[in-house]
Design a protein around this nucleic acid. Sequence first.
DNA 1: GTCCAGGCATGCA
DNA 2: TGCATGCATGGA
Length: 272
Amino acid sequence: MEIKKLNNSLVVSGVDCLDLDLTLDCGQAFRWERQEDGSYCGAAGGHFLKIRKENGDLIFENTDIDVFNNFWVNYFDLNRDYKAICEKLKEDELLSSTIDEYYGIRILNQEPWEALCSFVISQQNNIKRIKLIISRLCNAYGDDLGNGYYSFPSAERLSQLSTADFEALGCGYRAKYLEKLAKDVACGEIDLQKIKSLSLDDARKELLNIYGVGIKVANCALLFGFGFLSAFPVDVWMKRVMEYYPDGLPECFEGIEGIAQQYLFHWARNNL
DNA sequence: GTCCAGGCATGCA
DNA sequence: TGCATGCATGGA
């Protein structure tokens, strides 16, 4: 990976396996919006970003090197060798053709709080409406980051809301889950950093104790927010995919089940 | 109008 | 432990 500064932007070359459409608009993160020119605008970690691809390079617009090194490198998982991971996963027949067709999916390292909240909202919901609710939540209670974007509101901020406030955002029956979650995280009853330090099984047990969090939401949070690449969320789409693996997951998935899952999820949504 | 979506809590057997 | 049911909302 090589980084050059150009005016107010950073030009990052040498990053393999990062397709912006497949990574930012594949149902793992809900705050990125595709622009007409193919670039993406979004917010994470309290930073606004406009990112695009040009001649194979990634352009991080209006980004300084410190924020890039301290936040975006980890967010986009830029130090992981996804090319080697994909080679390994292609030992599986279905993934082999899927990765050829949809090469470039990465697992973003989102913040635990945002990921957990987002996937509580996601249950029994479609991606378009999940995005709608989360944008309302951020616009109403996040900090202004400029360019029309707002940060994802902190647990402390959301702990001040009532169930009715969440219902007003369109959260529906999930409102009561979110109200309790925000209060429990804000007061320290739920310690997200501690959960991140646990083993996968122990972290999952902790998440399953949370009101409104079941096995699917727990696995999504673990994979997309807590850095557990072995987590393997199974939703209605993945249940359809699992019929292709009657004997369980192939050996080549081991340790990277979550990345395999994201390719299969994308394949299912386009083919089943 | 009906059906569905990155499911879960609850009650009951 | 497993299964049926109710749940809010907006887009197709």
